[in-house]
Simulated assay, not measured.
Amino acid sequence: MPMSRRSFLAAAAVASTGALALPSGASAAGGPPPFGVTVPWGPFDAAAWSRRVATLGAAPRYALWYASFVEAPDPAKLAAVSAAGVVPVLSWEPWDPARKNQKAFALARFLDGDHDATIRRWGDALARYGGPVHLRFAHEMNAGGYPWAVGVQGNTAAQYVATWRRVHGLLRSRGATRVVRVWSPNVSFPGSAPLASVFPGAEHVDVVGIDGYNWGTVRRDSTWQSPSRVFDATAAELRRIAPGKPLLLAETASTERGGDKARWIAELFRWMAAQRDVRGLIWFDENKETDWRIASSQASLAAFREAVARR
């Protein structure tokens, strides 16, 4: 999510050519699509993951975490996640979160080649890892909350598209051909960058992600929103921009404040089950601006357990 608000193993895995095969949105039994959760750990913590599985009553099939451009690539964590039968979803953030000044990460600097060495180093590491990874580079570019976003530091939509293509081109040139390219905007809102202007093109994107949250009454300018209200308009827009591309709710969650979170969770899974192109969701399982966690209350946890038990 923006600073101000801040994959299961496919039926046929990503081929060595980088081609993508994903199942339909609903499970074979007619239940909701697969789910995932964020994981905060540095090296993959198998014991913590086992506790998470026990708490949820079902095994998540995506694990998402975040890495900045100043962090070294961690193929060992990717391999450990894959070995657990889970698809790693890596949100690769082009910035240094410890810096106050982010001018070095303006998109123009990427196009000037300032970060090519870092990108090649990551490409080499991903190639050595050799397994599939959903790579979510520079997410929420339309929302204005990050130094790579359109309208920040003089960044333009055209620069974003060119940067996306340059980064993924360099990764592939180093042999990282099993990277699933996840383009992941925030849900549209008044004043956000038009999604069509920041879409890198169908040949440069494998999966279209959507980040959307129910903020309830956490902020003075927010109200309780149903899952359909959060996602419908943006999903329809993305289907026009990228017809035929699989959709993934790459970040989602609800607050407890302002409504019934347990009911919201049940509605979310029903909404997903009705969308044939939505391949799954990843829950932002953190206590941050509000308590987004699945287990923020017993009622919330029970609703989630019931929803995933139907899979």
Score class of each variant (00 low, 15 high):
residue 269 F to P: 03
residue 285 D to Q: 02
residue 202 A to D: 04
residue 92 W to N: 08
residue 123 G to N: 06
residue 82 S to F: 07
residue 293 R to V: 01
residue 223 T to W: 14
residue 203 E to S: 10
residue 13 A to V: 13
residue 277 D to C: 04
residue 107 L to Q: 04
residue 141 M to W: 03
residue 146 Y to G: 01
residue 94 P to M: 03
residue 97 P to I: 08
residue 215 W to M: 05
residue 126 L to Y: 02
residue 311 R to Y: 08
residue 221 D to M: 04
residue 118 T to D: 10
residue 193 A to V: 05
residue 84 A to H: 10
residue 198 V to N: 07
residue 146 Y to C: 02
residue 162 A to M: 05
residue 5 R to N: 08
residue 177 T to E: 02
residue 154 G to Q: 04
residue 2 P to W: 05
residue 13 A to H: 12
residue 52 R to K: 10
residue 67 A to K: 10
residue 210 I to N: 06
residue 103 K to P: 13
residue 307 A to V: 08
residue 239 R to Y: 08
residue 37 V to H: 01
residue 31 G to F: 08
residue 129 Y to Q: 09
residue 196 A to S: 14
residue 218 V to W: 13
residue 28 A to M: 08
residue 225 Q to Y: 08
residue 52 R to C: 06
residue 128 R to A: 14
residue 187 V to Y: 07
residue 277 D to V: 03
residue 10 A to Y: 12
residue 198 V to D: 04
residue 240 R to V: 12
residue 77 K to H: 10
residue 100 K to Y: 06
residue 43 P to I: 00
residue 183 W to S: 07
residue 268 L to Y: 00
residue 270 R to E: 15
residue 218 V to L: 12
residue 121 R to C: 05
residue 174 R to F: 12
residue 189 F to A: 13
residue 52 R to A: 07
residue 69 F to W: 14
residue 250 A to W: 15
residue 290 T to M: 15
residue 53 V to D: 02
residue 199 F to H: 10
residue 36 G to F: 13
residue 36 G to V: 07
residue 233 A to I: 09
residue 211 D to V: 03
residue 61 R to M: 11
residue 233 A to C: 11
residue 234 T to D: 09
residue 197 S to R: 13
residue 150 V to T: 03
residue 182 V to S: 02
residue 222 S to W: 10
residue 150 V to D: 00
residue 266 A to T: 13
residue 223 T to S: 15
residue 31 G to K: 04
residue 145 G to N: 09
residue 234 T to V: 09
residue 164 W to M: 11
residue 3 M to Y: 12
residue 225 Q to N: 10
residue 188 S to V: 13
residue 163 T to C: 15
residue 274 A to P: 05
residue 165 R to D: 12
residue 278 V to P: 09
residue 155 N to E: 07
residue 283 W to D: 00
residue 245 K to D: 00
residue 151 G to K: 15
residue 209 G to T: 04
residue 209 G to R: 03
residue 68 S to I: 03
residue 131 G to F: 02
residue 238 L to H: 05
residue 46 A to S: 12
residue 294 I to Y: 10
residue 155 N to Y: 11
residue 93 E to M: 12
residue 277 D to G: 04
residue 290 T to D: 15
residue 273 A to Y: 05
residue 175 G to M: 01
residue 140 E to T: 00
residue 136 R to N: 11
residue 13 A to F: 11
residue 20 L to A: 02
residue 102 Q to K: 02
residue 44 F to H: 01
residue 139 H to W: 10
residue 304 F to H: 01
residue 196 A to D: 15
residue 146 Y to H: 11
residue 185 P to H: 11
residue 163 T to Q: 12
residue 201 G to H: 04
residue 202 A to S: 07
residue 254 S to V: 05
residue 132 P to A: 11
residue 55 T to F: 10
residue 58 A to M: 04
residue 301 L to E: 10
residue 56 L to W: 13
residue 143 A to V: 01
residue 158 A to V: 12
residue 81 V to L: 10
residue 92 W to R: 03
residue 51 R to Y: 01
residue 106 A to L: 09
residue 260 D to S: 03
residue 173 S to V: 07
residue 22 L to N: 01
residue 7 S to E: 13
residue 189 F to N: 04
residue 104 A to Q: 09
residue 45 D to I: 01
residue 169 G to Y: 10
residue 49 W to E: 02
residue 183 W to I: 09
residue 56 L to T: 00
residue 63 A to S: 08
residue 134 H to T: 08
residue 134 H to P: 05
residue 251 E to P: 06
residue 136 R to G: 05
residue 146 Y to L: 09
residue 213 Y to V: 01
residue 134 H to D: 14
residue 89 V to R: 00
residue 251 E to T: 01
residue 292 W to A: 00
